[in-house]
Amino acid sequence: MNIRGNFHSELQLLKTKIITLAEMTEEAFILSIDALHNQDVQMAKRIIVKDKEIDRCENEINNQAVLMLAKQQPVATDLRMLISAIKITNDLERMGDNAKNIAKSTVHLGDNHNLIIHYAIKEMRDVALNMLKVVVEAFREEDIAILKSLAIMDDEIDQAYGKLIKEMLKERAVNMDKNQYILQMTFNARYIERFADHITNIGESIVFLVKGEAYQLN
């Protein structure tokens, strides 16, 4: 295989690693909200520890991308792939941080709080997971047409977040003794909202990869 062939094999391997990182992030996100609902402090602690694996994976991908940039000095689509790889990986790592923060909230609340997790948390989670599936598929196939649904889903999450905030403010006005619960629900909704924002960023990076131009999806 010639040098160019080797380079494209490395690009494909890099792409595969990014998809694997997305799967790791998705798993952390799902488990963190499961732990929150189930008051599973031990699971939450495991998620916090496993976040280091996401960090290591991010570093490995970024180091590989930078090395390929330095060695091959690629142009056109190949250059855009490496730039996009670095940007997408950074967003995935930040998404992992949001999952970790949800797990920390579970630890903070403890395993015997007897509080009902606000229904909007699961609603936002489901929409965010659908968004993640869309961008992974778009990245795998380099198909930007399917990204059109991202803005609609991101708006759904923003609306649910706003509704939760309003309800928590009303709750705080009449139940000051639930202040910690109210804060944690607000924080967790914010973590999910940020998780979704990073997915939208990934979608925009995919548009750049395919079309070579900046584009705001929302």
Rank of each mutant, 00 (worst) to 15 (best):
R4G: 07
R4L: 15
N6A: 10
H8C: 07
E10Y: 01
T16C: 11
T20F: 06
T20I: 02
M24I: 01
E27S: 13
A28Q: 13
A28L: 13
H37F: 07
N38Y: 14
Q39T: 12
V41T: 05
M43V: 11
M43C: 04
I48D: 02
K50Q: 13
D51C: 09
K52G: 06
R56C: 07
E58K: 12
N59S: 15
I61G: 02
Q64R: 05
A65S: 11
A65Q: 07
A65T: 11
V66L: 13
K71F: 06
K71P: 02
Q72H: 11
Q72G: 01
A76S: 14
T77D: 13
D78W: 01
R80K: 09
S84P: 10
I86M: 13
I86D: 09
T89G: 05
N90Y: 11
D91L: 00
D91P: 02
N98A: 06
N98Y: 11
K100Q: 05
N101H: 14
I102F: 08
I102H: 15
K104C: 00
T106G: 08
G110C: 12
D111Q: 11
N112C: 12
L115R: 10
I116A: 15
I117E: 08
Y119E: 08
Y119F: 11
E123N: 10
V127D: 11
A128N: 14
A128I: 01
N130A: 05
N130S: 12
V135Q: 05
E137A: 14
R140F: 03
E142G: 03
D143M: 02
I144E: 13
A145W: 00
I146V: 10
M153Q: 13
I157E: 06
I157N: 07
Q159W: 08
A160F: 13
G162E: 04
L164H: 03
I165E: 06
E167C: 15
M168C: 13
A173N: 14
V174S: 10
V174Q: 09
L183W: 04
L183N: 04
F187A: 05
R190E: 06
R190Y: 04
I192E: 06
I192L: 10
I192V: 11
R194A: 12
R194L: 07
A196L: 11
T200I: 08
N201T: 11
N201S: 12
I206H: 02
I206G: 02
V207N: 09
F208S: 03
L209N: 03
V210H: 05
